[in-house]
Structure formats: C-alpha cells, structure tokens
C-alpha cells in the first residue's frame, strides 16, 4: 500500500523526525518499497497461531525478580558527565510558557 503524503507526515511527527518537502518526497517513495516488502507478510505460507507470548521465545522463563530494596544510586556528577556545561542539572530551554 502506498503511503499518502498525509500519512507520511503523521508518521514523521510520531517519530519526531523532520524532513524538508524535497526530502519528504524522496523518503516517502523509499518507504513505499519498504512497506510493499512488509506487505509480503500477507503471502505467508504459514497460517500462524494465536497464542502470542510477549517475546515469542517460549522456553524463556522469568523466574527471578529483583528484590524491591533501596540501593545506592549513581552519583549525580557521573550521570551528568555527558551534559555540556551542566550546573548540576540537565539543561533545556524554558518549556513552560
């Protein structure tokens, strides 16, 4: 199924990606081929089975849960070490107007 311009723009917003008009047109054409490829799922030889497990890997048993205990967290300066010019916070521009 070909992607309409409107649908493509919606997907771009949901994906938080921005394209110029020219890029959007090129990208939309490329996506048409990719979606046509995804559509081949409708020609599947298998009928499938309905019992969907969350990961599809049925032998995996989740037997152990982490103890609900307070543990020491990473120090602030480590967490902020990837932020340029941090003054003890993650910095963003004012977003409440």
């Amino acid at each position: 199924m070909a992607l309409s311009k409107e649908d493509f723009n919606k997907l771009a917003v949901l994906s938080r990606l921005k394209f110029s008009d020219e890029e959007a047109e090129k990208f939309r054409n490329e996506m048409d081929d990719i979606i046509a490829f995804a559509d081949t799922i409708n020609n599947a030889v298998s009928g499938g089975t309905d019992d969907i497990k969350s990961t599809g890997t049925d032998a995996v048993l989740y037997t152990e849960l982490r103890e609900d205990a307070v543990k020491e967290s990473l120090p602030n300066e480590k967490i902020l070490s990837n932020v340029d010019g941090s003054k003890g916070f993650f910095n963003v521009r004012r977003c409440v107007k």
């Binding site: 992607l3 919606k10 997907l11 771009a12 949901l14 994906s15 990606l17 990208f27 996506m31 990719i34 979606i35 995804a38 799922i41 409708n42 599947a44 298998s46 009928g47 499938g48 089975t49 309905d50 019992d51 969907i52 497990k53 599809g56 890997t57 049925d58």
Partner: peptide
C-alpha cells in the same frame, strides 16, 4: 518510520500482531 507505521492505530493488527502470530509458528 517503518516501526512507527506497523505499530500505529489501524495497522497494528495487519502488521505487528500478524508478525507475532507468524513468529510463533516459525518457532
């Protein structure tokens, strides 16, 4: 974009859910 498309309302059943169903059959 493809991932967002197959999870979006109206397409979820046709793509993502169907893929999960087929996945179990492959297993």
């Amino acid at each position: 974009i493809l991932g967002t498309y197959v999870l979006s309302s109206g397409y979820y059943d046709a793509y993502y859910k169907k893929a999960c169903i087929l996945r179990n059959d492959i297993i």
